[in-house]
C-alpha cells in the first residue's frame, strides 16, 4: 500500500487538482451556465499563490486562502459582466477570458516570470492537507446535489422559466455559479503550484480547458461522482496507456470523441440510467404500475384539441 502510494504520489496529487478543476467547470454546467472560467481561475490562483509564496513567504494556508478569495471575487465580477449571455456566447466569452489570463502571464515581466513561469514555490503544504481540502470540497459539492438545493439546481438548468415561477432567482443562482467556479478553479491552481512548486504559461492554455471538459464529459456532467470518475480516468489513463505504446494519445482522443458523441451524460449517467431501468424492472415484476390502471380507466384522447371543440359544439349548437 505505501509502496503504491509513494511511487504514484505525483499521479495522486494530479488526481486531486484535476478533480477540483473539473468541478470548477462542472458546478456552473450543472446550473445551466456553460462557463469555462474555472480554467482561467486556475491560472490566476496558481500564479497568485506562487507570487505570494515567493515574494511574501506566506504559509500554504494563506496562499490558498488568498487565491480562492481573489478568484471568487474575480468570478463574481466576471459573472456580473457576462451572466446575461447564453449558451455558445457565454462559453466563448469564458474561453476568451481564460486565454487572456494566459497572455497576461506571458507578458507579466518578472512578476510572472514571462514564458518560463515561476518556480521554487516551496511551502509546508502536506498531502494530508491536500486530501482534507479535496474531501471538504467534495462534501460541499455533494451537498448541493441533494435536497432542496439539488432540486433547485435541476430546475435552473432544465427549465429556467419554471424555476422562476417556483420562486427561484436565476440571477442569484447564475452568479453563485460564477463565484463557486472561480473559487474552485483558484483552489485547484493554488494546490497544484504548491505541490509541483512551479507554474508556467503552458500549464494554463487551451489544453487546460480541454482537460477539465473531457473529465466531465467522459465521467459525467450531472454529479460530483462523474467528476471523480473522469479525474481518475484522465489522470491515470495516460500512465496505463503507455502499455499500449506509442499510440496512447490516439486512444485517448478516440475515448473522448466517443464519449462526447454517444455518452453526453458520461459514464456516471449510464450508471444512473441503468439503475433507473433495473428499479423499474423490479417494480413491474413486483406489482403492476398504477399507471396501467389509470390508462385502462378510459380512452385518452391523443389530440386534446379535437375533443374540446367537439364539446363546445354539443353544448352550443342547437
Amino acid at each position: 500500500m505505501m509502496d503504491f502510494y509513494d511511487s504514484n504520489l505525483v499521479l495522486i496529487q494530479a488526481t486531486c487538482t484535476g478533480l477540483i478543476l473539473a468541478l470548477s467547470i462542472q458546478v456552473p454546467l450543472r446550473m445551466g451556465v456553460f462557463s469555462f472560467a474555472g480554467a482561467g481561475s486556475y491560472g490566476i490562483g496558481a500564479y497568485l499563490a506562487a507570487i505570494l509564496v515567493i515574494e511574501q513567504e506566506v504559509s500554504a494556508f494563506v496562499a490558498i486562502g488568498a487565491a480562492m478569495l481573489a478568484t471568487a471575487v474575480i468570478g463574481l465580477l466576471l459573472g456580473l459582466l457576462i451572466f446575461k449571455l447564453n449558451g455558445l456566447y457565454l462559453a466563448m466569452a469564458t474561453v476568451a477570458f481564460d486565454l487572456i489570463i494566459g497572455v497576461i502571464t506571458i507578458n507579466g515581466g518578472e512578476t510572472t516570470g514571462g514564458s518560463t513561469g515561476l518556480y521554487g514555490v516551496i511551502t509546508d503544504f502536506t498531502m494530508g492537507q491536500m486530501f482534507a481540502l479535496t474531501v471538504i470540497v467534495l462534501a460541499l459539492v455533494a451537498l448541493s446535489e441533494v435536497g432542496r438545493t439539488g432540486r433547485r439546481v435541476d430546475a435552473v438548468r432544465d427549465d429556467p422559466e419554471l424555476a422562476l415561477s417556483m420562486g427561484i432567482s436565476l440571477r442569484r443562482y447564475r452568479l453563485t455559479a460564477f463565484v463557486v467556479s472561480g473559487a474552485l478553479g483558484g483552489l485547484a491552481g493554488a494546490m497544484n503550484v504548491l505541490v509541483r512548486s512551479a507554474i508556467g504559461p503552458l500549464d494554463i492554455g487551451f489544453g487546460l480547458i480541454v482537460l477539465g471538459l473531457t473529465m466531465i464529459i467522459v465521467g459525467g456532467s450531472r454529479s460530483w461522482k462523474g467528476a471523480v470518475i473522469g479525474a481518475i480516468i484522465f489522470t491515470w489513463l495516460p500512465d496505463i496507456l503507455t502499455a499500449i505504446g506509442e499510440w496512447q494519445e490516439l486512444v485517448y482522443g478516440i475515448i473522448v470523441a466517443l464519449a462526447a458523441v454517444f455518452l453526453p451524460r458520461g459514464i456516471y449517467g449510464v450508471l444512473v440510467d441503468l439503475n433507473k431501468w433495473l428499479r423499474r424492472r423490479r417494480r413491474e415484476r413486483r406489482d403492476p404500475p398504477p399507471a396501467v390502471a389509470a390508462e385502462q380507466a378510459g380512452d385518452i384522447d391523443p389530440k386534446p384539441g379535437d375533443v374540446r371543440e367537439f364539446a363546445l359544439n354539443e353544448e352550443t349548437v342547437p
Partner: peptide, 25 residues
C-alpha cells in the same frame, strides 16, 4: 436545439483530439 449546440461544440473539441494526436505523434 440548445443541448445540440452545446454538444456539437464539445463533440468538435473531442473529435479534434484524434487528428491532433496523429500529427503530434
Amino acid at each position: 436545439k440548445r443541448t445540440a449546440e452545446m454538444q456539437i461544440l464539445i463533440g468538435g473539441i473531442g473529435v479534434a483530439i484524434i487528428p491532433l494526436a496523429i500529427a503530434q505523434h
